[in-house]
Amino acid sequence: MRADVSFEGSEASTGQNARKGGFIRGLTDCQKQPKTLFDRLGGSIAFLAQGFAVFVPSSLRKGSSLASITFPPLIPLTSIFLLAATLTFAAAVVQALLALRSGRWKQDNTQILLMAIGFVLQTAFLYHRGQEVGQCPMKSLPDILVFIGWSVVLLYFLVGSGFRLSLLGVFTAPLVTVVQGLALLQGFNPYAVKGKINALVELHAAMALIAYAAFALGCITGIMYLVQERLLKQHRIGGLFYQLPPIQGLAKAIQRLVSLGLVLLSLALAISFALHTPVSNPKLVFSWIVWGLYAVIAFFMWRHVTSPRRTAWLAVVGFVLPFISLWIVTHA
């Protein structure tokens, strides 16, 4: 297989590739070229070598005889971080499922360690992606998905331990894996270059996305509530029952997460007044709709209008709206 970028040019090409369309697009470009089985095998070896090449300092590479070998475009470092983070969260899901299935689940350090490694890798991705695009990476849908995934894990560490919600990681990891998987499938496009960064805009966007992460965690806690409630009603007292927290604690956690998300979204929307954004801006319109929905849910919780079970359903189903709105506003 003839590749178009040499080893020496790897760092430059990484940036170019990122600008061309990111991990999935980069791969697709490479995979279009091989015609024969041999070509494909060669392509795979080259692909594995790229992963190694990313971690080899350029000073070492220049003197190497490998320098004469040519490879297809390198996987961007950012995508490697994201792929590794996603695989780590997927491993956390598998580990938990195997443990639960065998009935040997215990709240041990393995789950927390995997979540922590995933979080570090997510943070590394966001940092490098921010460097690439020269601003907070929150403009495209894949970037937003990753930022929400990061915020969900951050809140998991802050909230999970505070509420002593064992198994929250088990329910969080699949969501983050799916969200980041979607981001990887979409690929990462370049941004239009910004003249000057407005701190208020960045703060507004970051707060709104962390609010969405709180709603996501509220959705996860809602699922935990509904599962535990069902087990209790049906007298199915088994492995999962013993690991899930008391339903009263879960109901309180949902209430607090929805309230936290609502406060953060309110602040984000308050900031938008200072930005003189047109009222018809689709992002703003959807943000207000989401705010309205969660304000109603929070009111129901506060006034005990409905039972905790119905409130849990609202927290679960309600999250569909912010999730869909993200897709709509980024494609509008």
Binding site: L232, Y242, I247, Q248
Partner: peptide
Amino acid sequence: VDLAEKVHD
């Protein structure tokens, strides 16, 4: 006791 623990604190 187990049931009570899973309903309340």
